[in-house]
């Protein structure tokens, strides 16, 4: 391993450590009270102390997020392919989707509660609703940007639209699709936590809400850290998946120096 490569490898850990150290130092230097902004050390103590509830609620949030995300991947892929397939479907659905995406999902949660009660299902559905839009848009974009010359080459051979979709459209959409998964998975966390903090007895969102009611500020932050860790792990998984599936699309050395 060369020197610069070592720096690149250790950079994520060093930068994260630096952020926590700065935070810790700032709290001490400016004498910020713990109920306003607890130092990382206090949060760490809380995480150890409340490990049981944090662990259980994290798993709950993770499960609602992943199920919602899974639904979003399925629906997003199908809808994206449909929108990319036909200009009529595109024209018809696009304004609807944009309008739908513009609605704050927090406003939808009460309706979901009305339909499905509180807890598991609204969280899953909110995660789904918030995360499927980027998948649809990216899949449709991948299909819409097929080179017309390539289309001509294949059409002149007698290729059907389905042939072009299978041989060119879908493979070339994959980098867009996997790229969108990274955005979608983090959005899915936002969705499930919103729903949990409004209408649930479980999950990190609910844990933070209760901690707030009891003025346990370090526990609120412990919840945030748990979410951040889950978010990073899932994002990293998506990035690995992306690199594995679409290595051909990532050959630029742009950010490597």
């Amino acid at each position: 391993m060369t020197r610069s490569e070592f720096y690149v490898r250790s950079a994520p850990w060093l930068y994260t450590l630096a952020m926590f150290l700065l935070w810790e130092a700032a709290v001490h230097i400016f004498k910020i009270p713990t109920f306003f902004l607890p130092p990382p050390s206090a949060i760490a103590v809380t995480i150890v102390e409340y490990w049981g509830p944090i662990y259980r609620n994290s798993l709950f949030t993770l499960s609602t997020t992943l199920i919602g995300f899974g639904l979003a991947v399925g629906f997003g892929l199908l809808l994206g392919l449909a929108v990319g397939w036909s200009r009529a479907i595109y024209a018809g659905l696009y304004p609807l989707m944009i309008g739908f995406n513009a609605i704050p999902k927090v406003a939808v949660v009460p309706i979901l509660v009305l339909w499905f009660g509180i807890g598991f299902l609204p969280a899953v559905l909110t995660a789904f609703l918030i995360s499927f839009f980027p998948i649809v848009v990216n899949v449709a974009t991948g299909l819409a940007t097929i080179e017309p010359e390539l289309e001509d080459v294949l059409k002149a051979l007698g290729a059907s639209k389905l042939d072009i979709m299978r041989k060119v459209g879908i493979p070339r959409t994959l980098p867009y699709f996997f790229g969108s998964l990274k955005v979608a998975i983090t959005l899915a966390f936002v969705g499930s936590v919103i729903s949990e903090s409004i209408a649930s007895n479980y999950g990190i969102g609910n844990l933070m809400l209760q901690a707030q009611a009891q003025f346990q500020v370090p526990l609120i932050f412990a919840g945030l850290i748990a979410l951040a860790v889950e978010g990073i792990v899932m994002y990293w998984l998506m990035a690995v998946l992306e690199a594995r599936m679409t290595g051909w699309a990532q050959r630029s050395g742009f950010a490597q120096t």
Binding site: E147, E149, A156, P171, R172, L174, A249
Partner: peptide, 19 residues
Amino acid sequence: TQPVKIAGMAFQAPTLLPW
């Protein structure tokens, strides 16, 4: 009346599939 199927085409851009 339909794509001729006995033709091969090449353009200015090679349009190869990168995957």
